[in-house]
Design a protein around this nucleic acid. Structure first.
Length: 439
RNA sequence: GUGCCUGUAGCUCAAUCGGCAGAGCACUGGUCUGUGGAACCAGGGGUUGCGGGUUCGAGCCCCGCCGGGCACCCCA
């Protein structure tokens, strides 16, 4: 044992059973994204390191980077958003704007692994490039809600805030702009460590008590979104940045309401701070209170990012779901039913003399549209073949011995019940269809 | 990146103070030559994650590495 090499820290293999569930979830997301008019793209896993750096702030140290055979400095993509910005800059003459794309693919972060945190994980992104309209942001939030609803994610809520409101907090507090990240870091923990904890944290980072209190007072405003916006406007009037943020959020919430988005699934959260440097407008985070696995996805508007590559400014907004966390929750809570195997039926072989008959039958069945397999092991005992079907969860076995072959019939056995019927070969594919339907 | 916990058969775990590495499940074969799940019987399977050190003797103690987990940091 232990002779076989391990996989790298934070990376995993997936067994067929897990893959069938993952594909089921991915297909669901694909369906929801396309339902909204998002179209698929793909980009390389590896980019020039220069493409990736300078976009993520502090987190940049987690980028996997190395030198390739041509001595190029390269890196594995850290998310799907920066590659999208590069993609749009490269292909902007071939795209129709506003450009809506989705992208489901693995990304890499050299983070220390933990529950729900891996070094290779899949993101499911939907973004809209080329419009400043809050309609785009509303679409993004709505598609997110629909995607999570489609897989029965329990108790999830999309928290919404605005980068411009967040940026105005330093001003409100009367401290230098450099302190902004400190403030964000502190208030983001409000739900976790409470008001005292937040105040303590800010003070520990050289923010005066009265300034900290002003910030806390502001982000603690609660009530219906409309009331909160009114109160914010009153307190922040004259602050241009903040007023822009409030006005955009007002539109966003209005659009969401017009779209019929379920208000149980989104909420204004003035303490939400997103770390990535490139966000400029509304920011979103999807959380599940029932799941206890951290954030299910992050999102937001990033109007300056495409411009960093093309010089031509193209505003953009989008969302990202973390498949691994969603998948962990699904498995833990058994949220989604997926088939345990891909075959609907196993054609058994009676003995060496009847191999040809079984092969003919499996060929016919496949051509008639039934996903099925034939037992390809060396020992042809029926019991062994039944056991194979049983363990793999193949719902139906087909038995054809000398008697059946002579009469042009086959035996159809439903594994779950043990019920068998003898039917003419010509009826087989419709009998299988009926049997599966009646389960 | 920092701090802590952890690694024994495919899986879950046991092994007294440092003194011959075990059990259940799983697996393989048989009871059972036209039928899976159940039962019974038998069997295979280990360089105790890897490497070094201490010791007469290490699964157990020490150091390094690899993997897993938790809390930070941060994040999906």
């Amino acid at each position: 044992m232990a002779r076989a090499p391990q996989v790298l820290k934070g990376m995993r293999d997936f067994l067929p059973e897990q893959m069938l569930l993952r594909q089921h979830v991915l297909n669901t997301f694909r369906g929801v994204f396309e339902h909204y008019g998002f179209e698929p793209i793909e980009t390389p896993v590896i980019e020039y390191l220069e493409t990736l750096t300078g976009k993520y702030g502090e987190d940049e140290k987690l980028i996997y980077s190395f030198q390739d055979r041509g001595d190029r400095q390269v890196g594995l993509r850290y998310d799907l958003t920066v590659p999208l910005a590069r993609f749009v800059a490269n292909h902007r003459n071939d795209l129709t704007f506003p450009f809506k794309r989705y992208h489901i693919a693995p990304v890499f972060r050299a983070d220390r692994p933990q529950r729900g945190r891996y070094r290779e994980f899949w993101q499911c992104d939907a973004d809209i490039v080329g419009t400043k309209s809050m309609m785009a942001d509303a679409e993004v939030v709505s598609v997110w809600i629909d995607a999570l609803s489609a897989i029965n994610m329990p108790g999830f809520v999309v928290h919404i805030n605005h980068r411009k409101l967040l940026m105005s907090l330093a001003e409100v507090a009367g401290v230098p702009d450099e302190q902004t990240p400190t403030i964000h870091r502190a208030i983001d923990k409000l739900a976790k460590i409470g008001e005292d904890g937040v105040l303590k944290e800010m003070q520990a980072n050289d923010i005066p008590v009265d300034a900290a209190r002003r910030v806390l007072d502001l982000v603690s405003i609660s009530g219906e979104p409309g009331e909160v916006f009114a109160e914010l406007s009153k307190r922040l009037s004259g602050n241009t940045r903040a007023e822009e943020g409030i006005s955009e959020l007002r539109s966003l919430f209005a659009f969401l309401e017009h779209m019929g988005a379920d208000s149980d699934h989104y909420t204004l959260d003035l303490t939400l701070a997103r770390g990535l440097d490139y966000y400029t407008g509304p920011v979103f985070e999807a959380l599940s209170v029932d799941a206890n696995i951290g954030s299910l996805g992050g999102a937001g508007r990033y109007d300056g990012l495409v411009g960093m590559f093309s010089g031509e400014d193209l505003p953009a907004t989008g969302c990202s779901l973390g498949l691994e966390r969603i998948f962990d929750v699904i498995q833990e809570k058994n949220l989604v039913e997926a088939p345990s195997t891909v075959s609907n039926a196993l054609v058994t072989i009676f003995n060496d003399e009847t191999i040809g008959d079984s092969l003919r039958l499996v060929g016919e069945l496949r051509r008639s549209g039934v996903p099925c397999e034939i037992f390809v092991g060396e020992k042809l005992e029926l019991r062994r073949q039944m056991q194979f079907a049983n363990r793999k969860g193949i719902p139906i076995t087909i038995i054809l011995g000398p008697d059946e072959i002579q009469r042009g019939e086959v035996v159809v056995r439903e594994m779950a019940t043990g019920e068998q019927q003898t039917v003419p070969r010509s009826d087989l594919s419709s009998v299988i269809t009926d049997t599966l339907r009646s389960r």
